[in-house]
């Protein structure tokens, strides 16, 4: 006791394993058991939604949907396949991307929508902004190991919520080229992040 100087680590980041256990534990539990799960994973859902949607209100709506889905389907979470963080980030991203696409379909149907251009510009992805956003994270360091074309393709696909085809149009590149850039880019990131599961 009293050796305060020995511990410089920041306070209370719940360990990944403890979060996994919290999620497993709320299966069949009382609704109150979900409160610590929300506290631990809400920021992941919100961060993943915000990355794709950019708009805080939309991201909050998606986060609400996702966290209720997490509660409902907690029994489907399988710790053997990945962390709770990854599971929630995956669910959140999928919903955010769905929302982007349905909005887009909506706009496409209304060719005269005057918001179209400003919306599109607001959604343009600037690699430098992304790198600033990720500052200090492991992904940021690992992105440096990609070629600039790989980095651009991965970042545009991730933050734009775009399909391969849309990425190809956006970057004015051939579809097979984009596919291989994204594949090689994600594979390098995987090796750099050390997420191999055996």
């Amino acid at each position: 006791m009293g050796q305060t100087e020995a511990v410089a680590s920041p306070p209370a980041r719940t360990s990944a394993d403890a979060v996994d256990a919290l999620l497993v534990a709320c299966v069949g539990g009382v609704p109150e058991s979900f409160a610590p799960v929300y506290d631990a994973l809400g920021p992941v859902a919100y961060g993943a939604s915000l990355g794709v949607l950019r708009d805080p209100d939309h991201a909050a709506e998606v986060t609400q949907e996702v966290m209720v889905e997490v509660w409902q389907t907690a029994s489907r979470f399988d710790p053997a396949r990945g962390s709770a963080r990854t599971w929630v980030a995956t669910l959140a991203r999928r919903r955010a991307v769905d929302r982007v696409r349905s909005e887009q379909a909506h706009r496409d149907r209304d060719q005269r929508d005057t918001d179209l251009r400003s919306h599109e510009r607001a959604r343009d992805v600037v690699v430098e902004d992304v790198e600033r956003r990720l500052e200090g994270s492991a992904v940021r360091r690992c992105l440096d190991g990609l070629t600039s074309t790989q980095r651009e393709a991965v970042v545009v696909a991730y933050y734009g919520g775009l399909t391969y085809r849309e990425v190809a149009e956006r970057l004015d590149a051939a579809l097979p080229t984009v596919k291989s850039r994204i594949r090689d880019g994600l594979s390098r990131l995987r090796d750099c992040l050390g997420v191999h599961r055996g």
Partner: peptide, 22 residues
Amino acid sequence: RAVVAAFAVETEPPAALRSRVL
């Protein structure tokens, strides 16, 4: 999926969301 999830930057959601979800 773990790679893609690593892009998510933890961001504190609006405070009002907590009680709505719970």
